[in-house]
Design a protein around this nucleic acid. Structure first.
Lengths: 237, 237
DNA sequence: TATCATTGTTTCATTATGGAACAATGATAA
DNA sequence: TTATCATTGTTCCATAATGAAACAATGATA
């Protein structure tokens, strides 16, 4: 991230290195991304920040997420480093500074080229209570298919995060972090369908997931709807 | 990489950010890693370096590889960023500096904590003519199972590169970069077996690979051995 | 010409997957 | 009470992928 860093002590951080986080949540049969809005501009940026000189990058990502969104100790996965020379951010950053009545100090590294480490986070939508960072106007969820105007190359970063999530779907227990404690098979299937962006067969999906022995069937869920009540499941620890 | 950077103009580079490359080759039925040896010490370090302020990280990796090994325009893949706070490198680096009669300048960022971007490279062993970097004593191939004394956390980095290579084996055309223009099915199979570190069935392997329609059968290879001559294959462009 | 090691291929059993149908169930309406 | 309905849970079968064994081909050597 390169915005919202208007008042920082540059000596505390590793110069020209940043972290950007793509936070995925799942709600209303849609995959969502949590995005803070830049104050005074029609512009959104991934929650991001810098790495303290004595701080591990994973800890930096956790700290940044807590400062910007209030989320603590969440599932994080490094996915790519964005470091093209043409990854120019100074122009947009200057816009941000001007819009917020900050002067532009040309010699600071904040205005130089950045290398940014991308992390994606998976969170249980129902447990998230977002906090607005001191430089943010809002911090809200957006459908992955209807993202707002993203700053810098943050649309590319989000896209790459989504591709990585898809690629990892069979190797990591994605659902464990994106769903509440208990859920129905249908909810899990819709989550997979949403991430993969393609329909899956109900019977085959159930057979495959159950054969993995990662789910425990708990009680039934009576919704009051006029049909058979589905079982609830939870992940086996 | 944090060694062999004894005489550098620090202002040209992004501070505290480095690139380390794990170069894989395949020869004699073994997976090899190309490693320069640190001058005057019983110590080897992955070929690495820093990123110029106006340079993309991929170009930086290519430049570093050319300077250190003579390899140009090779297959590179980013695989992980190593940025733990405890990733201390100063002690070893001071040893390197002392052993090479360089003074230690405490305030330079070269001695601070580093965040290092890991790249792995795949090269055709038969085409490699290594060059010794100006700070290196030798630059030679080592069997992946018999690595020499590696500096810093470079053994971890190498291990992670190998794991990523394994994980990607079915998704990327690994063989295309590690084998010469033409090769036998057996050579390809041994490559796969070596990377995966487990035996594969000859018949099933052949069937699976051929069904992928990525190989073109060329002429036969007469070795003079007392058995049927195998076909040679090459990858379809 | 027989032997040998290795390669290329076929065959068969087993398992996984795709696709359809059927049975079960919890509410609602006749 | 009973018929209806939407959805869930399950079974069944055809097809595809994979595991494993056997067989045929071939290029050199004795």
């Amino acid at each position: 991230m390169e915005s919202n860093t208007l008042i920082i002590d540059e000596d505390k951080f590793i110069p020209q290195l940043s972290i950007d986080c793509v936070i995925f949540g799942f709600y209303g049969e849609q995959l969502k991304v949590l995005l803070p809005k830049v104050k005074h501009l029609n512009l959104w940026a991934l929650p991001g920040g810098y790495v303290l000189k004595e701080e591990g990058i994973e800890e930096a990502a956790q700290r940044i997420l807590e400062e910007r969104t209030g989320l603590t100790n969440i599932y994080l996965e490094q996915f790519y480093v964005f470091g093209k020379a043409t990854r120019s951010t100074a122009e947009t950053l200057k816009l941000v500074l001007l819009a917020n009545d900050f002067g532009i100090q040309e010699n600071r590294w904040v205005l130089e080229r950045f290398v940014s480490i991308g992390y994606y986070a998976l969170v249980d939508f129902s447990k998230v209570v977002t906090k607005i960072g001191i430089y943010d106007e809002t911090c809200e969820w957006y459908d992955i298919h209807q993202l707002p105007n993203l700053a810098f190359d943050h649309a590319d970063i989000t896209q790459k995060a989504l591709e990585t999530l898809r690629f990892m779907l069979d190797n990591k227990l994605i659902g464990l972090n994106l769903l509440p404690e208990t859920f129905t098979m249908k909810e899990l299937q819709i989550l997979y369908e949403t991430i993969l962006d393609k329909p899956l067969r109900r019977d085959n999906f159930q057979r495959k997931i159950l054969s993995m022995d990662i789910l425990e069937r708990v009680e039934k869920k009576f919704t009051g709807a006029a049909h058979k009540a589905p079982y609830l499941y939870k992940f086996i620890k």
